[in-house]
Design a protein around this nucleic acid. Structure first.
Lengths: 126, 126
DNA sequence: TGATAGTATAGCAATATTATAATATACATG
DNA sequence: CATGTATATTATAATATTGCTATACTATCA
């Protein structure tokens, strides 16, 4: 059975799913190991590209590229400081989001010893 | 040519970024409009595929396909009920995660009238 | 067992992301 | 204004996702 569907026209209210598209884009911005690592550092305060690069030991273009993804989704903001550019979380709630996620992983990973141990270490870290 | 690989054994250290890879996969599971819509329904309780399909007015294979993504990342679990399959959030914290995300969007969307209004409507909804 | 309802999967073209390397830009400072 | 330093962008080949459509289970019931 195929449910009926119709196109959206000019005067339509916001169609169900438009907001979800927006949300999905936000989550997609987080959906990359490097970007998670960047955010987990930025949660503790603003950092320059250089500092981030050194912390992750990655090539500079790669760091800038991933930062650009976060920037495009308004997850982080930038401010010039002389030659450097400092990146900051646009909303501290992102930290809370990562915390909730961590709790979910914790529940999920019970039984997967190694990852679980690292997860606990993270939770303890300031 | 397949590069050599070996299974991780008990005493192995965890490579930097492995946990982040895991987290990234989780976020990627949420990074799709349809999957967000599914989760926002499931937050209110378990639903059969049929119920979800009707709520979203989407073709059945598409719903099953997206549910499969959530299932593969252990975001939801299933239980058979006669001919039907009921999907349930594996962890109620997912609801909290979506809530925090909603608060982030709310901050972010100030000024974007339409979406913001819809967002508020959502927050009020039980 | 055959028919049917409810779900799941396969196959495939279109599209989007990613890693990597190479190249650009911006700007403080001499 | 030339130069060096810190960031940013581009190009592109490899890979992964998505939306469809068609097809395949699986359990129930006549």
């Amino acid at each position: 059975m195929t449910p009926p569907r119709r196109r959206r026209t000019a005067g339509d209210a916001i169609v169900a799913g438009e907001l979800q598209t927006f949300k999905a884009r936000f989550f997609r911005a987080l959906a990359h190991p490097t970007r998670i690592r960047l955010l987990e550092i930025l949660v503790h305060g603003g950092r320059t590209v250089q500092e981030l690069q050194q912390a992750l030991t990655l090539d500079q273009p790669l760091v800038s590229q991933q930062l650009a993804v976060l920037r495009n989704q308004n997850v982080v903001s930038t401010q010039k400081e002389g030659l450097s550019v400092r990146y900051t979380l646009r909303d501290p709630l992102v930290g809370e989001l990562l915390d909730v996620a961590r709790r979910i992983f914790n529940n999920q990973l019970v039984g997967t010893r190694g990852l679980l141990r690292e997860l606990r270490r993270e939770a303890r870290r300031p």
